[in-house]
């Protein structure tokens, strides 16, 4: 991954350091994170008499594309197109248990549960085929199997799957051989321009390189990585939450600046394909991976540009200017 980053950043090539009041710098960073563990996911695949398929799963799709990927997994096992799998949205009256949609856990944990539920359903379909006297491997459509058994469009098959990862709690010294079912690994590289008169930082290039296992839907994963990096870019540069005795005092979105379209640098995303052998179809979580390294990469680039090491976010003009003045032994007064 570091190699991928260095290549993309042309790390060994000469670098323009800027001139006058605008100094240029570049930095890279790499981060790893565990997925929350141990957690459980349960899924139900329901095959109807007409051959249609519902998938009941509690993963909340908030834009990350979980519904698409879960349908892909069920479709892959059942050998039907993903678009024919109707994913039933989370509803505690209807959908089975899932720990939560967080911690980049859904593709891995719910993905396994969906895979197992679909495999369970597939075994039952094969049993039904035997029951109605069809030879092994016959590709008779499901609706016809039901018709043969019930003499009408009736019946159903329910496949259930649950997944609990192996996990070993930490011992007295805090060590465990199995802390998490998978690790997320994300790297970022940034090039910045720092205005030494104002402390204003402009990110002129942002590179994300991520190990996401085998991306089940590469297009969705690329958008996730890019979006995650942009959200982290906002936290890195702009988003300052003000508190007064625990009460947030930013009055509105006007006082809590999230990135707008003018704030987006040219972004490149690259996935290092490294199959996660314990994951469903080689996949693992990718939700947070794009966030890990953006802040340290930009902070490193600022350090490279103007020699100040800032360890608190956001790296807004005030923070950078204060650091520059402190470095010149002319610190500004506190607020």
């Amino acid at each position: 991954m570091l190699d991928g980053l260095a290549d993309r950043m042309n790390w060994s090539a000469p670098f323009d350091r800027g001139r006058g009041t605008v100094r240029r710098g570049r930095g890279i960073a790499i981060g790893i994170k565990a997925s929350v563990s141990p957690t459980t996911s349960v899924a139900i695949v329901y095959l109807f008499a007409d051959g249609s398929c519902n998938l009941y799963c509690g993963t909340v799709d908030m834009g990350q594309g979980a519904v698409t990927v879960m349908a892909q997994i069920a479709g892959e096992v059942l050998n039907i197109p993903a678009e024919r799998v109707k994913v039933v949205h989370p509803d505690t009256d209807v959908t089975p248990y899932d720990m939560a949609t967080l911690g980049s856990r859904s593709t891995y944990h719910m993905g396994h549960a969906v895979r197992l539920a679909a495999e369970d359903a597939r075994i039952k379909v094969q049993a039904l085929a035997r029951e109605v006297g069809l030879p092994e491997g016959s590709q008779v459509p499901l609706a016809e199997l039901f018709q043969k058994k019930y003499k009408m469009q009736a019946g159903n098959i329910v496949g259930v799957g649950h997944y609990i990862p192996s996990y070993v709690p930490p011992d007295a010294s805090g060590l465990t051989p199995q802390a998490t079912p998978f690790w997320m690994i994300g790297g970022a590289g940034a090039e910045v321009e720092v205005d030494v008169e104002t402390g204003h930082v402009v990110v002129t290039r942002l590179v994300n390189v991520a190990d996401v296992g085998r991306p089940l839907n590469p297009r969705i994963v690329a958008t996730q990585l890019s979006g995650a990096a942009i959200m982290q870019l906002g936290i890195t540069l702009f988003e300052k939450m003000h508190h007064d005795n625990g009460q947030v005092t930013n009055a509105s979105l006007a006082d809590y600046k999230i990135p707008g379209i003018f704030d987006i640098p040219p972004i490149e995303n690259e996935t290092v394909e490294a199959i996660q052998h314990s994951g469903p179809f080689g996949a693992k979580g990718a939700g947070e991976t794009g966030t890990f390294s953006v802040s340290p990469a930009i902070a490193n680039a600022i350090h490279d540009a103007v020699g100040v090491r800032i360890t608190e976010l956001p790296l807004n003009p005030e923070a950078v200017f204060r650091a520059l003045r402190a470095k010149q032994n002319q610190p500004l007064e506190d607020e």
Binding site: T223, S226, G227, I230, M231, L253, P259, G260, I261, F262
Partner: peptide
């Protein structure tokens, strides 16, 4: 494009795709 869409915010950060 940027100028025209600068009054629209996307918290998911889909700006490059937009």
């Amino acid at each position: 494009i940027r100028h025209y869409l600068s009054g629209n915010l996307c918290r998911c950060g889909a700006y490059p795709e937009i």
